[in-house]
Design a protein around this nucleic acid. Structure first.
Lengths: 326, 326
DNA sequence: ATGAAAGCGCTAACAA
DNA sequence: TTGTTAGCGCTTTCAT
């Protein structure tokens, strides 16, 4: 038994060690459907591969086979919250079962563009959590991606619905002039705009002015300033683009000596743990991306099945609900 | 001009279109050091490549060149916080400048193991944010990774130091019996144990009993129960493994009608926004992973320079400091 | 049931 | 300065 430390173990090495041809090795290791492998040969090959610590060269395999088992998941924003985490969890679980390998592209980081990364790893499928423009989409297809999945209009509608729910929540409780707290400090949440649109729609439907939008840092002093501007404009209820921003507004109101929700009502979005633990607990819109993760995985699988699929559809309709705490 | 929609554009196509050989194409596109390319030929090749929308087949390139420009960043826990985000940001920025492509492995997700993923994408380097056991490390090397980077003893020492700092903070303020709040609900933070060790050491140094450790869910009721157990054991100060858990303890204390920090002092770790926005604001240990990210990138680059490097060293010493709020 | 041989698309000596 | 040629490690038809 000789241990080679410097050179890669190739399938030829395994073949030699097992006294068979490379073809046989390939058949055995890939469990080829044409089940023509003798039991003794099979185990001999397996043993040799194991003993030599053989790992097939993935790039060579992709080149020869002309297909890839890699799925690239593009995550837009960087501190990754629980919602996206749950999405990813379901997504990965479903794909793992089919032997696909998921790697993530952290789009918020500096570096090569999504199509470049896709090309570099030679992914079979790309799933993005944000809509891609036509150009990017074309580039992805050209990069070899066989299937490209992204939120479609339906998914956007869900985001819009979130803003709508927030505003409705406040309007139903008698608020006639609303504010909207946008995140200023963090990486701009790409979905914030869509949500705002929903809030605007809710106001319009109720015959109200559209919300007074103010960018808020995750800082009590800064939020206090925003709060005073809202107060000056007779705003009594504020929708925040996410829970962290909502917590900032809460802190700002507290600093201004205001009672929440008496003087100022706040509703967030995401249902992060910290929001539930705040005093008073935040009202927040909960949306469940788990189902979407599973569905996205199925779309990918189905599309890859025929190895010829195109842009696939929605990420399903997450259950939207508002958790009332105030 | 013919547009082929079904077949991949290969370097041969470009060569044909430009009326040169594949070698020339390869040289031009890779900007080979042996700068022997005529200006006219060069532009002709570039034009043809662009016109055909040529993208080199990355797998084929890796196979032929025998090297990879992929770096796999393994992220252990899934909701990804700001610390790790900042680390990744610096890390990616430094590597992007050198033309390396970073993709992330979300280790918390179900699916193939790190070595498997590494092999599948054929990464040149792997960086993990948690220590890898000897077996995994060996598997990674066998998977073709030329450099494997992970927190070493020094990095572990930093984590331990965090726990120590938390405990010291409380001890210095006169607390003689400490509690430790471990996360129960979330994916077990792999570093929590190391931190706890630091807290234990601080207690030992001060001649105190070791902290009473209780697992706490991110839930006020559950935390309230933990709080009453601590109170029963005369605990007056609690170190939490992270800020979210600390917020839960805060909520639990509030629910029990206790004054913070009067009746129970709490110190977290991570300095998340929500902690700063809580009432009262949380004391927390801040540690800065940005420097570590940059340093990790440099280690990778240096190691890859000689394409022969081994396990590299520390992730530098983050600046540790405690933000006192109470 | 197994092996021989022809590539997959690219790079990199070596010629010319 | 450019083209010829020989692989990289694997898959896969086609013989055997």
């Amino acid at each position: 038994v000789k241990k080679a430390l410097d050179k890669r173990v190739t399938s030829a090495d395994v073949a030699r060690a097992a006294g068979v041809s490379r073809t046989t090795v390939s058949f055995v290791l890939n469990n080829k459907p044409g089940f023509t492998i003798g039991e003794e040969t099979r185990s001999r090959v397996l043993a040799a591969a194991d003993r030599l610590g053989y790992r097939p060269h993935a790039s060579a395999r992709r080149l020869a086979a002309g297909r890839s088992d890699l799925v690239l998941l593009s995550l837009p924003d960087l501190p990754i919250g629980v919602n996206v985490a749950r999405f990813a969890e379901r997504f990965a679980a479903a794909l793992a079962e089919s032997g696909l390998t998921v790697v993530a592209h952290l789009a918020a980081l500096p570096g090569p563009s999504l199509p470049d990364v896709c090309a570099e790893i030679d992914a079979a499928a790309v799933v993005s959590l944000t809509s891609l423009d036509e150009e990017t989409h074309a580039a992805l297809r050209q990069s070899g991606a066989q299937v490209v999945l992204m939120p479609d209009d339906a998914a956007d509608a869900v985001q819009e619905q979130i803003g709508w729910l927030q505003a409705r929540h406040l309007i139903e409780r008698g608020h006639r002039r609303l504010g909207y707290a946008d995140a200023r400090q963090t990486v701009p949440q790409r979905m914030a705009h869509v949500r705002l649109r929903g809030a605007i729609r809710a106001c319009a439907e109720a015959g109200l002015e559209e919300p007074l939008t103010i960018g808020v840092n995750l800082d009590a002093d800064d939020a206090a300033e925003a709060v005073s501007r809202w107060r000056a404009a007779s705003v009594t209820g504020v929708c925040a683009c996410n829970d962290e921003t909502a917590l900032a507004v809460l802190a700002g109101a507290r600093e201004s000596g205001l009672d929440v929700p008496g003087d100022l009502a706040v509703v967030g979005c995401d249902d992060i743990a910290a929001a539930r633990l705040a005093a008073p607990p935040l009202s927040t819109v909960v949306f469940d991306l788990e189902a979407a993760g599973k569905q996205a995985a199925h779309s990918v699988l189905q599309a890859l099945e025929g190895r010829a699929a195109d842009v696939a559809g929605p990420g399903s309709e997450p259950h939207l609900l508002i958790r009332r705490s105030t």
